[in-house]
């Protein structure tokens, strides 16, 4: 195991040389690239990356340009995780046979995917990777919608959100089904590490990524990624939205070790009502009409229940 990069504070972190380049075509204020930069800068090791189809893939690999300064592959919508798992298997085999030119280097295998490519389309592939125990990390950039193709709902879209395939209108308040609890599903594969991260808590994110790199086996990371285009807020407010998401506990930050040891890693000092989180986004605008006000109350109850559930799990270690 190679030595982990030491990052004590932000000043030290800022000496990192980025391996992700600008002039990609992501929207101004997109949180995807913030998360990618924090992940890539968390390690000094070589990286073997993949991206499943999604905003990140189409915007960073527009022929003839690439925005990645590391080995990077894209195949299809669903198989970003298996592409990296294949590379990892090959690496292991070559190492065993002694055919690696630089066996002392310890590359890290990371697959990036959006929530569409993880929660829906790539679900079986990721599940397979987790089950087979590849030494890879799968990172979901969770913006709760198929943002790349025009804002269709995914199984990550939360109740009440207006997406193009579940629009709000006279007869509907938008998406009617609740979000899939992907982290629990993945933790149930008894993988060594699963966690939820947010770009605004960079230290927590880096710590979790480094933990993920240090364990032997598959790692699942769910990163909340506020989408200025589909969540409908001003690009400059990206970090404000991420703050609201974590401080209202809509996206609680926690980790699950070995599928049972749950730790809450961030407890907000000043709790923000969920209403404030919803009010900051255009996709929830209709919930503030009189006939849908009850949904906001339900939102708060659901978030509170989930927080209580996480606390119980942390205590019980199950």
């Amino acid at each position: 195991m190679s030595e982990m990069k030491k990052i004590k504070n932000l000043k030290e972190f800022s000496t990192s040389a980025d391996r992700f380049e600008g002039a990609n075509l992501l929207c101004p204020g997109c949180a995807h690239s913030i998360i990618v930069r924090e992940v890539l800068n968390a390690t000094n090791d070589d990286l073997i990356l993949s991206a499943s189809t999604g905003c990140l893939e189409v915007c960073t690999a527009v022929y003839p340009y690439t925005s990645w300064d590391a080995s990077w592959i894209h195949i299809g919508f669903e198989n970003g995780s298996t592409a990296v798992a294949g590379a990892e298997t090959m690496y292991k085999a070559l190492k065993k046979k002694g055919r690696l030119k630089q066996p002392e280097r310890n590359p890290k295998f990371v697959s990036f995917a959006g929530d569409g490519a993880s929660y829906d389309i790539g679900f079986q592939w990721i599940s397979g990777c987790m089950e087979r125990g590849h030494n890879i990390m799968h990172i979901v950039l969770d913006n709760e919608v198929y943002a790349n193709t025009g804002g269709q709902r995914s199984s990550s879209t939360p109740i009440g959100s207006s997406a193009t395939t579940s629009p709000e209108g006279r007869r509907s308040y938008g998406e009617k089904r609740n979000k899939k609890d992907m982290i629990s599903i993945m933790a149930s594969h008894h993988i060594p590490y699963a966690a939820q991260v947010a770009p605004n808590k960079w230290k927590d994110l880096v710590k979790k990524i480094q933990h993920g790199f240090s364990v032997d086996g598959p790692v699942f990371i769910n990163a909340v990624s506020p989408c200025t285009t589909e969540w409908k807020f001003d690009p400059k407010d990206t970090m404000h939205l991420a703050d609201l998401a974590t401080d209202s506990l809509v996206f609680p930050l926690y980790e699950i070790i070995d599928g049972h040891e749950l730790n809450i890693t961030y407890r907000p000092k000043d709790l923000v009502p969920v209403e404030e989180y919803l009010a900051a986004q255009g996709r929830f605008k209709h919930l503030f009409k009189d006939e849908y006000k009850y949904l906001i109350k339900e939102w708060q109850e659901r978030v509170d229940a989930n927080w209580a559930y996480l606390n119980r799990r942390e205590e019980a270690r199950v």
Binding site: E21, A23, R37, W202
Partner: peptide
């Protein structure tokens, strides 16, 4: 030099 702008810049445009 708190570097908040560096870490939260989506476009690698803050030079530190």
């Amino acid at each position: 030099d708190c570097q908040f702008c560096w870490v939260y810049c989506p476009d690698v445009s803050i030079i530190s």
